[in-house]
Every structure is written in C-alpha cells, then in structure tokens.
Amino acid sequence: MSETRSPEQRRDADSRGREGEAEAAMWLVGQGWRILAERVKTKAGEIDLIAQRSGLVAFVEVKWRKHSSDLADAIDERRLARVARAVEIVAPDYASAGEDIRIDVILLAPGRKPTHIENAWMPFG
C-alpha cells in the first residue's frame, strides 16, 4: 500500500477494515468464541479483537484484502511485534482469571473462507 494515500483512500481503507473486523468477530462467535472487546487502543498500537473461549483469551489481528492472493503479505513479524507490545499492556485486564493467552490472526478476502492462524505470535515466550 502506498504511504501517500489521500484522506478519502484512508477513510475507505478504515471502513473496509472495520467491515473485516465485524466479519471476523461474527465468524469467531460462530466458532464458539465470545468477543470481549473490539479495536482496543494502547500506546503501542491497536488490537482488533479480543475473544475468549474455555480458559483462553485470544488477541486477534484481522487482515482483509481485496484479493486473496494479497493475503500472503498481509501479516509480518513487524506487525505481529506491534500487536504483541499492545497485548502486553492490556493482557492483565482481559486474562485476569489465569486464562492462557495467545495472539491469533484472521485473514479475509471476498469469496474465501476466513483463515484463522492460531498462536501466530508468542508475546511472553
């Protein structure tokens, strides 16, 4: 993506991102997860979704792309490290009963089933 996007392009990208996050949240609920929070902002960055299921809290990065062929480049170590820094800040607020935690990624593209990558990053390992 270009770093010199117009305000309209940034608004469109933000809107598509929000739609992708809503789609991912609905998919997770269908998989038995409970959504605890959406778009949690920290000084280190934003966590798209926080979900809980049977003793586990997942901090989820959602990536939506117009073409499924672009999903391979949607997530990288730098992006996951930013999410991990944000998780370190808020994990005690969401995993306060001794739940296990992990960072997951959900990849979305039109006409394709969501791809759920579990344990994409281990922030406290």
Rank of each mutant, 00 (worst) to 15 (best):
E88Y: 08
W121S: 02
P114H: 12
I47H: 06
G32W: 00
V105F: 14
A86V: 05
E8H: 10
E61W: 12
W27Q: 07
D12V: 00
W121Y: 14
V87H: 09
E3V: 08
M26K: 03
E3A: 09
L80F: 08
I117S: 11
I75W: 05
M26D: 01
E118D: 15
R85P: 14
S96G: 10
A51T: 10
S15Q: 00
I47F: 07
P92T: 07
L56G: 06
A84H: 04
V105M: 12
D93A: 15
R18H: 07
G32A: 04
A44L: 00
V90S: 14
A72H: 11
I103Y: 13
I89G: 05
A91Q: 12
D48F: 05
I50H: 12
A58T: 02
G98E: 15
G125T: 09
T42K: 00
A37H: 02
E77K: 01
P110W: 13
E38V: 08
D100M: 14
P110L: 14
D100I: 11
V87M: 10
A24T: 04
R79D: 05
V90F: 14
R112S: 10
V29Q: 05
D70G: 01
Q9T: 03
A51C: 06
D100S: 11
M122A: 12
V62G: 07
R112A: 15
K41E: 11
I75E: 08
I47S: 02
F59C: 10
A24E: 02
D73M: 10
L108Y: 09
K41F: 06
G32C: 01
A22L: 06
F124G: 06
M122Q: 11
P114A: 11
K66C: 12
S68C: 06
Q9Y: 01
S96T: 10
S15A: 02
V90M: 13
D73F: 13
D12I: 03
W27N: 08
F124L: 14
I50P: 03
L49P: 08
A109I: 15
V105Q: 07
L71N: 00
G125K: 09
P7K: 11
P110C: 15
R82Q: 14
D48A: 05
A109P: 09
L49H: 12
A25S: 07
A24I: 08
R34T: 04
T115N: 09
I75N: 03
S69E: 09
R112Y: 11
H67N: 13
